[in-house]
């Protein structure tokens, strides 16, 4: 008998003939009625709590805000292919699909996001053109993400509902960190050590 058939057979004999129906009640919060300005404040607060820097600006000031944020980062900037031209800093290089390890040559990455969850301070990138492939938001040491107000939701359930589970997804909550030494949180291990979030609203 194949291992597959044997394991499945063991499960069936373990469960026996009677299969109880188990009801799953979803009585937890699945929506958040707080007004948008409040959600933006919560998102900002949570991101800063994780030592990310948040820069808020109007839709027509994204490019200038990104440029100012990156001015102190020495080195080249790579951008996801779907990032609007108006957001890109001068001299930024568009990701051309070069071998992933070559991305280490860049000092910073600029991407958009798919959704941002206010309550947990989480940005989700889904490998769409605006977010770029996964290695892009991983290898350069500084990550700049532009979040527009319409992408912000209250809690995790609303966030997941907006995602496509078949795409490669990366949920990012602050810069990389570890709690492995005496359970104290230290920011900055293998992923980007700096996370800058440009939050765009009217």
């Amino acid at each position: 008998m194949s291992a597959r058939d044997e394991v499945l057979g063991r499960i069936r004999s373990a469960l026996g003939a009677e299969l109880p129906a188990v009801e799953v009640r979803r009585d937890y919060r699945t929506t958040d009625d707080r007004p948008l300005p409040e959600l933006l404040d919560v998102l900002t607060d949570r991101l800063e709590d994780y030592r990310a820097s948040v820069l808020r600006c109007a839709p027509d000031a994204v490019g200038a805000t990104v440029a100012a944020a990156l001015s102190s980062v020495p080195g080249d900037v790579v951008v996801a292919p779907g990032v609007p031209a108006a957001w890109r800093p001068d001299g930024a290089v568009e990701d051309d699909g070069r071998p992933a390890v070559d991305l280490t040559a860049f000092a910073a990455t600029l991407t958009g996001v798919t959704v941002a969850v206010a309550e947990t301070g989480t940005l989700v990138l889904d490998a769409s053109p605006a977010c770029g492939r996964r290695a892009l938001s991983l290898l350069p040491d500084c990550l700049v993400c532009v979040v527009t107000a319409d992408q912000v939701v209250g809690g995790v359930p609303e966030g997941l509902a907006r995602l496509d589970p078949l795409r490669p997804l990366t949920m990012i909550s602050g810069p990389s960190a570890t709690s492995d030494i005496e359970l104290q949180r230290v920011e900055g291990v293998h992923g980007p050590r700096t996370l800058l979030v440009v939050l765009v609203s009217d």
Partner: peptide, 17 residues
């Protein structure tokens, strides 16, 4: 509130990973 990184993937994605 949330761990820094959660990765989710389904099978193989051409050109990514």
């Amino acid at each position: 509130r949330m761990n820094p990184y959660t990765s989710l993937w389904a099978g193989v994605t051409p050109g990514d990973g």
